[in-house]
Design a protein around this nucleic acid. Sequence first.
DNA 1: AATGCGGGGGG
DNA 2: CCCCCAGCATT
Length: 352
Amino acid sequence: MIDFSNTLIEWYKENARSLPWRFTKNPYKIWISEIILQQTQVKQGLQYYLSFIKTFPDISSLANAAEDKVLKAWQGLGYYSRARNLHFSAKMILSTYQGEFPKSYKDIIKLKGVGLYTAAAIASFAFDLPYPVVDGNVYRFLSRLKGIKTPIDTSEGKKQFYELAHQLLSLTDPAGHNQAMMEIGSLICKPKLPRCSECPFNTMCIAYQTNTIYDFPVKENKVKQRKRYFNYFLIQEKDGLYITKRTGNDIWKNLYELPLIESNQSVSAKCLKEELIPQKLNFESASIKLLHKTKHILSHQILETKFFLLIDSLENVKSHSDYIYIKQSDLQEYAFPQLLLNFFAAIGISKG
DNA sequence: AATGCGGGGGG
DNA sequence: CCCCCAGCATT
């Protein structure tokens, strides 16, 4: 296995991308980068990393911030529980570890939002500890290299790939080895059109040698998408409008949005005006007009969304204690889901 | 073991 | 349209 690791690390030295989190041993910065890069590509995460570090340069600045500010820094990136967990864990490091980032794998993995992959990444990159990283890139690379057909999304598969990665891991340079495993998966052993001719392992790669690269990795789980119907209401007053905070265990928890009625099918303006708005918002004499219509795709939900301009008496609006009146110019102070940002941009009210 | 959680990109 | 991406928490 020494040969494998040496070849891998040599390849990495020649081909690694220059990325900001690769020039630091600061566990805080490495932590932030790893959380941002969960299920997120480098191209999309890079700017968020730079601005996040600028806004929250260290553990205490993150821990002492309001959650709204942390979510605002995360706006548009998705999987917002990552931001909430980062904030929670920063406070936890302050109170439990006196502000010093934990140095052992067993303490690192106790942080909320840090699982097997991220703990191994932080432990190896920041502290040179010999824990193997197994992410999507590594699954793909190793499954092709060894011709492993165990589905990667089963506990048996996870165990098998973790053990293989552990067995291959360099003990002299676990950090470089781990970076290299993911980088070769990302740059060479890509899902589509992998660059096998440039791969230093092509002569020993089972998938390449048997011309079956697209048979790997094997996955079992099928994702089903749920359809939902959102009806949003733009309620304007003077130079401002009403927004509300999403609570509860659903998408976009703790982000802001417009007053909403969710229906179980597509509904007309007439139906909203005559039935749903009186029923759910208690507005008896609202007049509404369709402004914008869109389909927003999440990985697991399809949101058929309509936006209406709603006009009603001020007393009715104000009776909703969870509606917050803000000036349009203050929209940028609040974190909105991408769906709402798209709407604001489409009708030209402010740039969030 | 199964499910929920965003959003962008590529073929 | 499809699948993929530096995963994790909850149940």
